[in-house]
Amino acid sequence: MLRFILRRILQAIPVLIIIATLTFFMVRLAPGKPFDAEKATTPEIRARLEAHYGLDKPLLQQYFSYMGNLVKGDFGPSFKYANRSVNELIAASFPVSLELGAYAMCIALMLGLLAGVIASLKPNSPTDYVPMSMAMVGICLPTFVMGPLLILVFGLTLGWFNTSGWFFPSDRVLPALTLGGYYAAYTARLARGGMLEIMHQDFIRTARAKGASEKRVVLRHALKGGLLPVVSFIGPAIAGLVSGSFVVEMIFQIPGLGRYFVTSALNRDYAMVMGTVIFFAVLILVMNLIVDIVLVWLNPKLRFD
C-alpha cells in the first residue's frame, strides 16, 4: 500500500514537470508579449515592467528560475493584479471553488446513488424508467445550458433565488445544482448498471437462500460491489467538476478560482494562468490517487500494482 502510494507520487512528478514545462514554453513562445495589450505603455515603461518580472533575461534562465520557485511552491507574481502573487490569488479564491465543488459532489452522489439504486431494484418498471429518463435528460443538459435555464425558472420567473452572487446560503443552491446535476445523472446510470450486474451474482442468491431480507441483501451485500463503477467514475468526475466550475462560476458570478482562471486567460495574465493550470493538475492527480486507493480498499480482487 505504502509502496503503491510512493510509486504513484514518483510517477506524478514527471507528469507535473511535463505540464509545467509545456505551459511555460507555450506561454513564452506565443506571439505577443504579456504587456502588449496595455494601452498606456511607452517602450520605456514596458521595458521596466519586463525587467521587473524578469522577462528580459534569456529564456532558459527564466525557465530554471520559474521551475526553482515552483519546487518551493511559489507561482510568482501576477502580471495583471499589481503587487499580488499568484499564490495569494489562489489562496483567496480556491476555498470558494472548493465549497461549490463539495456541494456539487454531494448532490451528484446522493441524488445519483439514490436514483440509480432505486431504478435497479425493479428493472423495466416505472420506478426504473422515470429516474433513468430524467438521468438521460440531465446528461444532455450541459452546465452552460442548465445554469441559465435554472436562473430563468427559479431566479427570474419564480424569484426564489438570487440570479448571481455568493453572499447568502441560498446563493449556493442553483450553482451547486447546475454543477452537480450532470454528474448526478451519470452516477445514476453507473449505479444502476453496477447494481444490476451484482444482483445476478451467486453470492446474492446465497444470501437470499439463507433468508436475508431484501433490504439486507441490497444494503449489506450488493451495495459495496455494485457501487464500484461509481467510485472509479469519481476521479474523472472531479476533473470534470474543475472545468465545469469555470462555466458555473462565470454564469453565477462566483468569486472562485474557476472564474479567475477564465478571466486571467481572457486577459492574458500568463503567470496566473500557468499557476492555475499547475495547481489544477496537482489537484486532479491527488484526487485520482485517493480514488484509486479507495477502489482497491472496496474491491479486494484488485491489488495495489
Binding site: 510517477q11 506524478a12 514527471p14 507528469v15 511535463i18 505540464i19 509545456l22 505551459t23 507555450m26 506561454v27 506565443a30 506571439p31 476533473a239 474543475v242 472545468s243 482562471f261 477564465v262 486567460a265 481572457l266 492574458r268 494562468v273 492555475t276 493550470v277 489544477f280 493538475a281 486532479i284 492527480l285 485520482n288
Partner: peptide, 20 residues
C-alpha cells in the same frame, strides 16, 4: 495513461488563448 491524467480541457483553453 499519463496523458489521461493531464487536465486537458485546461490545456486546450491555454492553446486557444495563446495562439491565434
Amino acid at each position: 495513461d499519463i496523458l489521461y491524467a493531464l487536465p486537458f480541457t485546461i490545456l486546450v483553453i491555454l492553446l486557444m488563448v495563446i495562439f491565434e
